[in-house]
């Protein structure tokens, strides 16, 4: 990739993450939610992969945990759904209930749906970045396979076995 896309990608990375967080926290009074925040954030990450390639993008913090993050997000979502059941309320009930006093942090209301949306955000971001990582890794491995040290490789050994 040329200089321009690299510069633009570098410049855009932090703003996309900030925009994603903004979408996440604004979701309760205005348009936005965890899902679209996750999509925006993962688009920013995909841009890094496209512009700098796998090795550079992997150096960014927390990318390595993206796949696990998806499962953690799903678990958070399920917990938010399940905890009310343990307390004797219907599943997916939110706290504090309608009309009750809510603590504000800036414009963000501190209610359990926010936690659920954080889970959704993690799930979407983790899934998108995790699959991009997986695809990038297989491509790189295939290139290595064409090279001299092909013996210690996983998937391709199966293929060789079949062709034998």
């Amino acid at each position: 990739m040329g200089v321009m896309p690299r510069t633009v990608a570098k410049l855009l990375f932090l703003p996309t993450l900030v925009a994603a967080v903004a979408i996440l926290v604004k979701g309760y009074a205005q348009t936005g939610d965890g899902f679209s925040a996750g999509v925006v954030a993962s688009l920013g990450m995909v841009l890094q992969y496209l512009a700098f390639g796998r090795r550079e993008a992997e150096k960014l913090p927390l990318v390595g945990f993206a796949g696990r993050g998806a499962f953690v997000g799903l678990l958070i979502g399920l917990l938010v759904a399940a905890v009310p059941v343990a307390l004797g309320d219907p599943v997916f009930n939110h706290y504090p209930g309608p009309g009750a006093h809510v603590v504000y942090l800036g414009t963000l209301e501190l209610i359990t749906p926010v936690l659920f949306d954080v889970g959704v955000f993690l799930l979407v971001f983790g899934f998108a970045v995790g699959s991009v990582r997986a695809i990038a890794n297989t491509i790189t491995r295939e290139e290595e396979y064409r090279g001299p040290d092909a013996d210690d490789l996983g998937v391709e050994d199966l293929a060789k076995g079949e062709r034998r």
């Binding site: 990582r133 997986a134 491995r141 490789l153 996983g154 998937v155």
Partner: peptide
Amino acid sequence: EKPEAGQEEEEIEKRSR
């Protein structure tokens, strides 16, 4: 059956980390 299939998978995982 391929007895080593499991180990290969682990190998892939180690590499992707």
